[in-house]
Nucleic acid binder design. Structure first.
Length: 800
DNA sequence: GTAGATCATTTTTTT
DNA sequence: AATGATCTAC
């Protein structure tokens, strides 16, 4: 542990505050750091959020800062909300003036306050990824380009990636014709967004960054305002987010970056772990604090995690410790098929539940979403409640998006994306030809679809005009209405309700539309959009600003009031922003006690008493698309590290010899990560012989009945003196394989046979074909994958 | 304009 | 296997 001393000139921190009670020395040091750039390496389960919130509370309480002077950035709405909740629980503070939110949320706030200077319409709309994709599609179509050569998804990805590197179209280096066209699309896309008054997610950040970069006065204002900037999950920041941070944080700013390089699992979407090192260097960080005390997991689990992650070459270096004792060994189980694996999981879950463990305290983790299906059906058949995270989110459902599109048109009729989405939904006889004519007219005049309706002749033109009249009518009728009334009227008049009433499975959709009304209602109450919502006086937060010529700068408070008039943006506009920025929970209804199922990515930041990591097979986890280069494999390893560290008391790791994947049976070897786990922390459960439940219910039952958490299971007998048996060399052969093996006798090999090859190592015979000199075999090798070998050439030694 | 058929696709994902 | 997107036939 290395904590730099406070430099001379900083008074010793006031340590008498009750806020600081119960912090360990490292946490305390982090919370009470002097106002200078600092980096906190916060391991899994080390109390990171607590440090962050306590730090803010302490700064406020000791009068070192006012609420308006704090900025705290997170990645997810959930993290931001949690911070606010904890903070208000610690300190009675008005959070209105505080800038605590996601990168995108804060940018939104900034751009709403400076909409004029940003060159945006006052009620600009935000495109979510789906909207962005359809906008890109329209550009590609308008430019008459081949969608095979310019796949919309990839183009959208290119544009987002460029923006996240801080590059505008003319900044992108062009070396080949393909890129040149991509850049042209990018430019056309930008023009289109500009015309329609919409911005995508990356644009929120990029535009904020550019404004601060190009306007020294504005930059100076914000730098003066935010004495403290705190960044959560720093290892996940991308290039643009880092540049953005450098705009807000000047030489005087106390930036506190909190992150864990070992939990960086988003490189695939642009996260740069290197930002941590850059931060250390560029901000001249003199305070590096490591939080290595883990308050979550028992010893064996941490041993496994530490041992595994030590195989990564590029690390900042950190080892988790616990005082909770060794606890239970990590249970490893092998299965013949994914189906059997799922059955075993269900039986173990039943046993855990019988032992008194709430189902919500158990989690099933997997590498990819496709793996959830088998598990789900096994749980379903067993009648065990479960909850799968990661499906469609509320605001992404088709019917909800349709409804939102109508609302967006009411707010801004030039939003072509929304226009196209609902102009013929429900069907009103407006076909592709009519829309093509409309698009042509719009393109020629450079106007929006809405504005070009007059240019379309005949019946099509009349239908379009009728649609415009419908939206126009809605706008008039709902003027001054409450959000609820607006939405209800829209659902009626648009025909959406009628449409879904006649649909055969429209009942769910109607339910969701009703839920939309509820969400709006909740939003109005929560965000204080009632009649007495008032903008904060302009000079309350940053005195002296007006003199500097930036009256608008400070008005960027929660309710996004207009910078000049102080008038608050309409509830409808605010709700639409909310809908874009926060897609809603992607979980089923809370309440029922259910087993939690999710990908390892989705599990980051969560913890459970018992965790199952399933499908630990080479090719799946580590994923074959990532395991061929060192960086990819290291990220997979970090992912595994995240999976392991989710568990408090009990961890199961399982893998299967066969798995249905893309409609075919895939044969795999156990994950190479098993070789990187310490034998002493593992217990290999032998298949089938011990039966289900493993007889471990007792200590669990006692622990939970005592109502105690960590510590109560320490040294619970089972692990003392326990010796790891040698892992079974190769698994028993599935029955189907044994049956087919009889036919292929002759060369001494059979399907399912384990063999050894001098170059490829151990493998499993998957297929046998041909006879005599033509005989060949497909063999699944561990890290070399499946190979076809000619049996008269290849030297294979059967393994017993 | 819609229903049904065919075809490609299939790591991870927040805002 | 299952999903989504595009194409074809009415």
């Amino acid at each position: 542990m290395h904590v730099t001393n406070s430099p001379a000139g900083h008074p010793a921190p006031d340590l008498s505050s009750p806020l600081l009670r119960g912090l360990n020395p490292e946490q305390l040091a982090a919370v009470t750091l002097p106002p200078e750039p600092a980096l906190i390496l916060a391991g899994a389960g080390s109390g990171k959020t607590r440090v962050l919130t306590t730090r803010i509370a302490w700064l406020l309480q000791t009068g070192q800062i006012s609420p308006g002077g704090v900025m705290a950035v997170t990645f997810t709405n959930k993290a931001a909300k949690e911070m606010l909740t904890r903070l208000t629980a610690m300190l009675p503070v008005n959070v209105r003036g505080m800038w605590i939110g996601t990168f995108h949320g804060l940018c939104n706030r900034f751009l709403r306050a400076h909409w004029k200077q940003a060159g945006l319409p006052q009620s600009f709309q935000i495109l979510d990824s789906g909207d962005t994709l359809s906008a890109v599609k329209r550009v590609i179509k308008a430019k008459n380009l081949d969608e095979e050569r310019f796949v919309p998804k990839q183009v959208a990805w290119f544009i987002a990636a460029s923006k996240e590197d801080g590059l505008r179209p003319h900044d992108v280096p062009v070396h080949d014709p393909q890129t040149r066209t991509l850049v042209e699309i990018y430019q056309a896309y930008e023009d289109q967004c500009e015309r329609e008054g919409v911005v995508d997610f990356a644009e929120l950040l990029l535009r904020t960054y550019e404004m601060l970069r190009d306007d020294p006065l504005l930059r100076e204002h914000y730098r003066r305002r935010f004495g403290h900037v705190l960044v959560d999950e720093f290892q996940d920041t991308n290039r643009l987010q880092y540049l953005w941070l450098k705009m807000f944080a000047g030489p005087e700013t106390a930036v506190l970056a909190v992150g864990d390089d070992d939990q960086s699992i988003y490189a695939f979407r642009g996260a740069q772990v290197g930002n941590m090192r850059d931060f250390e260097r560029e901000f001249r960080v003199r305070h590096l604090i490591k939080l290595e005390r883990n308050y979550r997991s028992h010893g064996h689990i941490l041993d496994a995690a530490n041992h595994l992650i030590s195989h990564n070459a590029r690390r900042m270096g950190k080892t988790l410790r616990t005082e909770a004792g060794a606890g239970e060994p990590v249970r490893v189980q092998e299965h013949g098929s994914d189906f059997l694996e799922a059955q075993w999981v269900v039986e173990e879950l039943k046993a855990l539940h019988r032992a008194g463990l709430p189902r919500r305290e158990t989690a099933l983790l997997y590498r990819s979403n496709a793996q959830s299906r088998v598990l789900e059906s096994a749980l379903f058949n067993a009648g065990m409640p479960y909850k799968v995270y990661g499906g469609l989110r509320f605001f992404e459902r088709a019917e909800v998006k349709h409804a939102l599109a109508y609302l967006r048109l009411i707010e801004n009729c030039n939003d072509d994306t929304s226009y196209l989405r609902v102009v013929n939904f429900p069907a009103r006889g407006i076909g592709a030809r009519t829309l093509e004519q409309l698009a042509d007219a719009a393109r020629q005049t450079g106007r929006s679809l809405w504005q070009s309706v007059g240019a379309v002749p005949g019946r099509g033109g009349a239908s379009l005009a009728a649609f415009n009249a419908l939206v126009e009518g809605l706008r008039h009728e709902t003027r001054g209405a409450t959000l609820r009334e607006i939405i209800e009227k829209m659902l009626q008049r648009s025909g959406l309700l009628d449409f879904y009433r006649t649909e055969k499975d429209g009942a769910d959709r109607i339910e969701n539309l009703e839920e939309l009304v509820n969400a709006a209602e909740a939003f109005v109450t929560q965000e204080g959009f009632g009649k007495d919502a008032v903008a904060l006086p302009v000079d309350e937060l940053a005195p002296g600003l007006i003199a500097e010529g930036f009256p608008q700068a400070v008005a960027a408070v929660d309710l996004t009031p207009d910078a000049e008039t102080g008038e608050i943006v309409s509830p409808l506009a605010a709700f639409l922003t909310h809908a874009s920025l926060e897609a809603g929970d992607n979980q089923a209804q809370a309440g029922e006690d259910a087993v939690q199922m999710m990908t390892v990515h989705a599990a980051k930041g969560l913890e459970f008493d018992a965790v199952f990591v399933t499908g630990l097979e080479d090719g799946l986890f580590p994923n074959e698309k990532a395991m061929n280069d060192a960086d990819g494999l290291e990220e997979e390893r970090r992912l595994m590290y995240v999976a392991i560290t989710r568990a408090r008391q009990r961890l199961y790791l399982s893998f299967s010899q066969t798995r249905m994947l893309h409609g075919q049976t895939k044969y795999s070897m156990k994950s190479r990560f098993f070789d990187e786990l310490p034998d002493g922390a593992l217990k290999w459960l032998s298949p089938r012989t011990q039966g289900f439940g493993s007889g471990f219910e007792k200590p669990y039952q006692q622990a939970w009945q005592r109502g105690s958490g960590l510590g109560s299971m320490v040294g619970a007998g089972r692990t003392a003196g326990w010796q790891p048996p040698a892992p079974p060399s190769l698994p028993p052969v599935p029955k189907a394989l044994v049956d087919s093996a009889a036919k292929s006798a002759g060369h001494g090999l059979r399907v399912g046979q384990a063999v050894f090859h001098n170059k490829f190592g151990e493998g499993l015979v998957i297929t046998l074909e041909g006879k005599g000199p033509d005989a060949r075999a497909q063999i699944q090798f561990g890290r070399h994958g499946a190979k076809w070998l000619a049996l008269n050439i290849a030297k294979l030694t059967p393994i017993d």
